[in-house]
């Protein structure tokens, strides 16, 4: 009897974690909506079928990378160019994923953690890291957050691909500010020490400066990688004085 009670408690807790993950994905999905729809519309315009556009969002889940693919296709570029650009665009996830390891270790089974990490994006990363500051990670939470965000991306692509050009300008709804607003808020949550603030400001400055001086880094997002490496190193140097 006691074992069953324990089992029920564990299942209840997992349910709660799953629900929390789904709940936390709502702002992400709101932000993905206009982006996914726009991707669906553009994919349609360069000649992809509804199925192809949707499958791309199922298998890829890389907003920036998918937009690049459309751009290169439009310009009549090679598949090799698309893939090479995507290697660069997705390189930052090596950093994101590695920084999650100390949290997931021994709390989420490696196989499940690795599989669920496929749902890692700028947004799910930011939300998850924020949660892990004061809650232990669980596979259920990761599943709720990452899978529902991915579903949001897939469904909005499908919507865009089906409705195509019938969709007017979604900018008027202000949804274009959903992701920036989320970043702003999560940044505020993430800053706990002075050194966090300096690191964030340095990263912002370096990222913009590199993007301004070498505009090509803006489309492959390598400026984020460089800015993160420089700012995190600065963080290590100044944190002793914290």
């Amino acid at each position: 009897m006691k074992n069953i009670d324990c089992l029920i408690m564990v299942i209840n807790m997992q349910n709660l974690e799953l629900k929390q993950g789904i709940h936390d994905s709502i702002p992400i999905i709101m932000g993905y909506l206009p982006l996914g729809v726009a991707f669906g519309v553009l994919a349609n315009e360069v000649g992809m079928t509804i199925t192809q556009a949707t499958i791309m969002s199922v298998l890829c889940f890389t907003g920036a990378g998918q937009y690049i693919a459309i751009g290169v296709m439009q310009a009549g570029g090679a598949v090799f160019t698309i893939i090479l650009a995507n290697v660069l665009v997705n390189l930052r996830y090596l950093l994101f994923s590695t920084s999650l390891v100390p949290f997931l270790k021994e709390r989420v089974p490696t196989a499940i953690g690795s599989l669920l990490s496929y749902g890692l994006t700028d947004e799910t990363y930011a939300v998850a890291m924020n949660r892990y500051q004061n809650h232990a990670p669980t596979a259920s939470y990761m599943a709720g957050l990452n899978i529902s965000s991915h579903l949001g991306w897939i469904l909005s692509t499908l919507l865009g691909a089906i409705l195509g050009s019938y969709i007017g300008n979604t900018d008027r709804l202000g949804l274009g500010f959903a992701l920036p607003a989320m970043y702003i808020c999560l940044l505020v949550f993430m800053i706990k020490r002075k050194s966090d603030l300096y690191v964030a400001l340095t990263a912002a400055l370096v990222c913009l400066l590199i993007g301004y001086l070498v505009p090509s880094t803006m489309s492959n997002l390598s400026n984020i990688i460089l800015a993160t490496i420089i700012a995190a190193s600065l963080g290590v140097m100044i944190s002793e004085r914290d």
């Binding site: 994101f96 999560l186 940044l187 603030l197 800015a227 995190a232």
Partner: peptide, 22 residues
């Protein structure tokens, strides 16, 4: 320690880019 600064750095970059280079 270095990895613990990755998140604030990434969020700083993303915020800056999304607001100042939309």
């Amino acid at each position: 320690k270095w990895l613990s600064y990755v998140a604030p750095a990434v969020l700083g970059s993303l915020t800056a880019l999304s607001v100042l280079a939309p």
